[in-house]
């Protein structure tokens, strides 16, 4: 394939990765920003979102679109409630101590993974997309006949993939509105900046934490519901999103929500675009080192303040 179309297809793929990553990482970023804890089980909430999506779509099963919409509403809700319960039962009891949270959430990870394996099984299970038309993309060239529109072989995407990007933007915009325009957002931001002060002003910090933890998990689940018609639900699918979200949150600058979005776009797009120039594994190595070097020379992240 020529360079131009190749570049376009890689960028499109990068954009889809970025969209999902932005949602998943935003969940982790909110938790990290407000509660200052490392939630190792975040990827498992993502996985649960996908598994519940399969389950809901499977149960409803009348029309793929109906099942999908139901999953998009139900999966984040269920996962969010479960996460909030985990917060109450475990994290609150250990006072959000950073080290203990790591061990506790690793424990949670084992529990969720094994329970899924025992109920859902080890197979990767697909969810049918609500719509999925292959869209060929035109390209141009200056040939013998001057400017021409052509339809290169293989250059295309699907309507569902474009929808994923759109849906991620809608959800993130909604989240941004909540965080900046509503009282809930105000309380969350106040707790993030100084939880002692927030407590003094009568903010029920414990309850806010449970909500935040639930919201973070729900965002991961939402990302998973969007991705599951492209990929499949599988009990080990949480590993990569966890690592990538982590990286995105730190690169973006701790607790900076716009930074998280920018970093997600940076990482998703670079993953796609670097693959144009190098052999696949080498591209992964380079993309990984690029991200590491960004942090080495800008430890506070892209939008973080120096000396946090």
């Amino acid at each position: 394939m020529d360079f131009g179309p190749h570049f376009l297809i890689a960028s499109l793929e990068g954009a889809i990765t970025a969209a999902i990553l932005a949602l998943t990482a935003m969940g982790l970023s909110i938790v990290f920003g407000v509660m200052r804890v490392v939630n190792v089980a975040h990827g498992e909430f993502y996985m649960l979102g996908a598994v519940i999506a399969w389950w809901v779509a499977h149960l409803i099963g009348i029309h793929p679109a109906l099942g999908f919409v139901a999953a998009l509403l139900l999966a984040p809700l269920l996962v969010g409630v479960l996460a909030a319960a985990a917060d109450k039962l475990i994290l609150q009891k250990i006072g959000y101590d950073p080290d203990r949270t790591i061990v506790g959430t690793i424990g949670l990870l084992y529990i969720i993974q094994q329970s899924t394996l025992m109920t859902f099984g080890p197979d990767a299970r697909p969810v049918q997309p609500p719509f999925n038309t292959r869209l060929s993309i035109p390209w141009f060239e200056f040939g013998d006949n001057g400017f021409e529109i052509i339809w290169p072989w293989g250059l295309g995407t699907t309507s569902y993939k474009l929808f994923v990007i759109f849906a991620a933007i809608v959800i993130l915009t909604g989240l941004w509105a909540v965080m900046t325009r509503t009282k809930i957002g105000l309380i969350m931001r106040a707790t993030q900046q100084d939880n002692e002060m927030a407590r003094a002003f009568g903010v029920p910090v414990e309850r806010v934490y449970a909500w935040v933890f639930g919201l973070g998990a729900a965002l991961a689940a939402a990302g998973a519901v969007l991705v599951v018609p492209i990929q499949q639900a599988h009990y080990l699918m949480g590993g990569d999103p966890l690592l990538l979200s982590f990286i995105v949150v730190i690169i973006g600058g701790l607790g900076s929500l716009p930074g998280t979005v920018i970093a997600a776009i940076f990482i998703g797009m670079s993953d796609g675009i670097i693959s144009v120039f190098f052999s696949p594994t080498l591209a992964k190595i380079i993309a990984t080192l690029v991200v590491a070097m960004v942090l080495v020379f800008r430890p506070q992240g892209l939008l973080g303040k120096a000396n946090p």
């Binding site: 394939m1 179309p5 190749h6 297809i9 890689a10 793929e13 990068g14 889809i16 990765t17 072989w153 293989g154 995407t157 492209i230 990929q231 699918m237 590993g239 990569d240 796609g272 693959s275 144009v276 052999s279 696949p280 594994t281 992964k284």
Partner: peptide, 19 residues
């Protein structure tokens, strides 16, 4: 075309298939 392990999306590698 060697695909790295743990990769979950593949379309970006397919343009390397010669015409």
């Amino acid at each position: 075309i060697a695909i790295p392990p743990t990769e979950t999306s593949f379309t970006k590698y397919f343009p390397n298939i010669p015409r």
